[in-house]
């Protein structure tokens, strides 16, 4: 009995001593689908263990701030890179773009309210869903999109729900709980059987979002983190898988949907949004 116990302890120690290299990867849940596949391949090819946490971009920053841990950070929109750098959590200048996201109207496959253009969202009786603009990038971009086209005051009364995350916004459309959501192009490839992408007029899109990644200040082995990032960005490895899942990784292709749009950058919610929301 005692022998077994000692061998057991030795094995645990051996595991510590000969432990394989590992990375703590804080990854936005919006790219969980392709990332799972990429990580599986990466681990198989390199033997490096990737400990991944999927969650909302802001939640991940909070977790990194409170745990002082993280080797690679990937988020659903560029503003979280700015927040992370400002709060001293990410190393400035290490951010790189993995993919581009084009704002889109996503409707249930049957399109019950026959939504064809952005203006249709203001029609009477249309129930619209969006991400919470104060916390979800999707919601923030949605407000900018509506405001840019002078539709904010007309569409906000039709907004039935703010979802707590990007994925939740997609889910409520899949479950047909709303007639349309302000989402990303890629939602269609997440659930091609249930939802449809209604393309917004090219001139109406003020901004395209990006999926960036960066290195946190807590990085233990920077070389290893950089290698992993190179793998994700490599056209034959990571980007290929992103493409397979419907993500746009080429800026020119993204520009086709919105030639005049800015790419990334910060947008602040306008005062009239708060006035509307806080109206009793």
């Amino acid at each position: 009995m005692r022998k077994v116990f000692i061998i057991g302890i030795l094995l645990v120690w051996a595991n510590f001593i000969w432990a394989t290299e590992e990375l703590f990867f804080f990854c936005g849940a919006a790219v969980a689908v392709p990332m799972r596949e990429i990580i599986k391949n990466y681990e198989k090819e390199t033997g490096v263990k990737v400990n991944v946490t999927y969650s909302g971009s802001g939640t991940l920053l909070s977790q990194m701030e409170l745990s002082n841990r993280g080797d690679v950070y990937l988020c659903g929109s560029p503003d979280y890179i700015d927040i992370g750098v400002r709060r001293g959590l990410l190393i400035k200048g290490t951010d790189k773009i993995v993919s581009y996201l084009v704002p889109a109207i996503i409707v249930p496959k049957e399109n019950p309210k026959n939504i064809q253009k952005l203006e249709d969202l203001s029609k009477k009786g249309v129930r619209v869903g969006m991400g919470n603009p104060e916390t979800v990038c999707l919601g923030l971009y949605g407000v900018e999109l509506l405001d840019y086209n002078n539709l904010l005051e007309k569409v906000l009364p039709n907004v039935a729900v703010f979802a707590k995350s990007c994925e939740d916004t997609a889910t409520i459309c899949v479950l047909k709980k709303v007639d349309a959501i302000l989402g990303w192009d890629v939602f269609e490839s997440w659930n091609p059987k249930d939802v449809k992408w209604i393309k917004i007029d090219k001139k109406q899109i003020p901004r395209i979002s990006t999926i960036p990644l960066a290195i946190p200040v807590f990085v233990k082995n920077r070389k290893l983190a950089e290698k992993f990032i190179d793998y994700i960005l490599s056209p034959e490895k990571g980007k290929k898988i992103f493409k397979k899942w419907g993500y746009i990784s080429d800026v020119n292709k993204a520009k086709k949907y919105a030639p005049e749009a800015k790419i990334g950058g910060e947008y602040k919610l306008p005062g009239k949004y708060f006035e509307f929301i806080r109206k009793p």
Binding site: L66, R87, T135, K164
Partner: peptide, 13 residues
């Protein structure tokens, strides 16, 4: 609880 979640989710500790 939802307000706590939203604050946490926008890195507003």
């Amino acid at each position: 609880p939802i307000a706590i979640f939203l604050s946490f989710a926008s890195c507003d500790i």
